[in-house]
Amino acid sequence: SRWTEEEMETAKKGLLEHGRNWSAIARMVGSKTVSQCKNFYFNYKKRQNLDEILQQHK
């Protein structure tokens, strides 16, 4: 299923807060499964600069 802007923003916040904790990110997004969140990261990594966001994760 397609990702809305809102879901993407929430997933990015999740990456920032939780790093690669996909289940925590899935809980934040609410409408996507753990594997969908993981796939989002790998599919949108380049397009959305997700690696940069991940590097900011403490």
Rank of each mutant, 00 (worst) to 15 (best):
Q55P: 07
T4M: 04
E9T: 14
Y44H: 09
L54G: 11
F42W: 11
R47I: 12
N39E: 15
K38I: 08
L16F: 07
R27W: 04
S31R: 06
K32R: 04
E5H: 09
T33V: 15
K32C: 00
M8I: 12
A24Q: 13
T33K: 06
E7S: 09
W3Q: 14
E17R: 11
A24P: 02
E52Y: 06
W22E: 00
F40P: 00
A11L: 13
W22F: 12
R27C: 02
N39S: 10
M28L: 12
L54W: 04
Y44V: 10
W22T: 04
N39G: 07
E7H: 08
R27K: 14
N49V: 10
S31Y: 02
G19K: 04
Q55R: 09
T33N: 03
L16D: 01
E52I: 06
L15S: 09
S23K: 11
K45R: 10
R47D: 09
C37M: 12
F40A: 03
T10D: 06
A24F: 02
R47G: 04
R27A: 13
V34K: 13
L15T: 01
T10E: 11
E6N: 07
K13R: 13
E6V: 10
T4N: 04
L54M: 08
T10I: 14
A24S: 10
F42A: 12
N43W: 02
R27Q: 14
L50Q: 01
L16N: 05
N21T: 03
F40T: 00
G14V: 02
T4K: 12
F40L: 03
N21S: 06
A11I: 15
G30Q: 03
G14A: 13
M28S: 10
L15R: 11
L15Y: 07
T33H: 00
D51I: 15
G30V: 15
R2P: 05
T10C: 09
E9Y: 06
R20G: 07
K58I: 02
T33I: 15
R20D: 14
A11F: 13
I53T: 05
N43Q: 15
V29H: 00
A26P: 01
E5I: 09
Y41C: 10
Y41V: 10
S35C: 05
E7M: 07
G19C: 13
G30K: 10
E17A: 08
Q36T: 11
W22P: 03
L15E: 01
E6R: 11
Q48N: 14
H18Y: 03
M28H: 06
W3F: 09
N49H: 08
L50V: 06
V29G: 02
N39Q: 13
C37G: 00
L16G: 06
L50R: 10
L50K: 04
A11K: 13
E6P: 09
E5C: 06
A11T: 04
E5K: 12
D51G: 07
H57R: 12
E7P: 06
E17T: 05
I53M: 11
V34A: 13
E17Q: 11
K38Q: 09
F42E: 15
Q55A: 08
K38P: 00
E7I: 12
E52G: 05
G30H: 00
I25S: 04
R27F: 04
R47C: 08
L54C: 08
C37E: 01
R20H: 02
V29P: 00
L15W: 03
E5T: 11
V29K: 00
T4E: 09
W3C: 13
L16A: 08
R2H: 14
L54R: 09
F40K: 06
G30I: 15
S35Q: 13
N21R: 02
M28N: 06
L16R: 11
M28P: 00
E52V: 08
Q48D: 09
E7K: 10
I53W: 07
V29A: 02
N43P: 02
W3Y: 10
I25V: 09
R2I: 14
G30N: 03
N49I: 03
H18E: 03
S31A: 08
F42S: 12
V34P: 12
I25M: 08
V29W: 13
A26F: 10
I53Q: 11
R2N: 15
A11M: 15
C37K: 00
S35L: 12
R2W: 09
L16I: 13
R27V: 05
I25T: 01
E6G: 05
K13A: 07
E17Y: 10
A24M: 11
L54Y: 04
K46H: 05
K13I: 14
M8E: 05
Y41L: 11
S31I: 00
E6L: 07
R2E: 15
K13G: 05
K38W: 00
G30W: 11
S35H: 10
Q55M: 04
G19M: 15
W22Q: 00
A11P: 08
R47W: 15
S35E: 14
H57Q: 12
E5N: 09
V29I: 12
N43C: 06
A11C: 02
G30S: 02
E17L: 12
Q55S: 12
Y44I: 11
E9R: 05
W3N: 09
I53S: 10
Y41T: 01
A26S: 11
S23F: 12
G14F: 03
R47K: 14
A26M: 08
K45N: 02
F42G: 05
F40W: 14
L50F: 10
W22S: 01
V29D: 00
V29M: 08
G30M: 12
M28T: 06
A24K: 14
G19V: 15
S23I: 13
S31H: 04
V34R: 10
A26L: 12
F42R: 15
T4F: 04
M8G: 05
M8W: 01
G19E: 00
G19R: 06
K38T: 02
R47L: 12
E5D: 09
R47F: 12
E7F: 04
I25Q: 02
R20M: 14
